[in-house]
């Protein structure tokens, strides 16, 4: 009689409960990785500083990928950046989320015909939230973060699970665009 309350829950359910509690903390304390991949990064300082103050939402910049939760892909990605972005993304600790900024990450944007810029980010790494615009307004940037929080709450921000499950597909796409992801040449001994 006493133990029925617990015996009803399987290990899986307990894990899920814990996960929900964890989600509460995760969405209220999103640490982002400062990697200015492109021009949209210029609207991040206003979002971080006095005018909009991201810290209200518990967000803050972090120095290294190990510490961060959100990877902000701020703008277009040249091939050279994409390599490093993938490397960085794989270094982050799970669960990890990606917010793609600007039209460039969605479909190449204004650089759709460039020889150095990729067109569609989510072929290479999974994206949880897109913020459209060239460049997106600070308000929409903030809105994007709030969206991400809602997604985490609804357990829909699971790009990192997708990346794990469809790893072969992602790896193949990366290889098509980049050749080997990690390069070793005279600059990278």
């Amino acid at each position: 009689m006493k133990s029925t309350k617990f015996s009803e829950l399987t290990q899986e359910q307990i894990d899920r409960k814990w996960w929900e509690i964890g989600d509460f903390f995760r969405r209220n304390s999103l640490w982002m990785l400062m990697y200015c991949t492109g021009c949209c990064a210029i609207e991040l300082p206003p979002a971080m500083t006095s005018a909009y103050d991201m810290e209200r939402l518990g967000m803050g910049p972090m120095a290294t990928p190990r510490q961060a939760d959100v990877l902000l892909v701020t703008g277009y990605l040249s091939l050279k950046t994409l390599r490093r972005l993938i490397y960085t993304y794989e270094q982050m600790s799970e669960p990890k989320y990606i917010v793609g900024f600007g039209s460039c990450t969605i479909n190449g944007g204004i650089y759709h015909d460039s020889h150095a810029v990729i067109n569609q980010l989510d072929r290479y790494i999974p994206v949880d939230v897109y913020v459209a615009g060239c460049m997106p307004n600070t308000e929409s940037v903030m809105n994007g973060f709030v969206d991400l929080m809602t997604l985490i709450k609804n357990k829909q921000a699971n790009g990192w699970i997708k990346y794990k499950e469809n790893n072969d597909w992602y790896k193949q796409n990366q290889k098509e665009a980049l050749g080997e992801v990690k390069i070793k040449d005279e600059f990278h001994e």
Binding site: L79, K80, R83, I106, N107, G108, H112, D113, S114, H115, A116, V117, I118, N119, Q120, R123, E176, A177, L178, G179, I183
Partner: peptide, 28 residues
Amino acid sequence: ILENWDDIPPLRKDFDPKAYSDARFPKR
């Protein structure tokens, strides 16, 4: 500036970035 470049130098007039982009980077 480029890394692992495998085509003709890109600012030559006979290089078509659009074709290069279409072949390498699929559109949405």
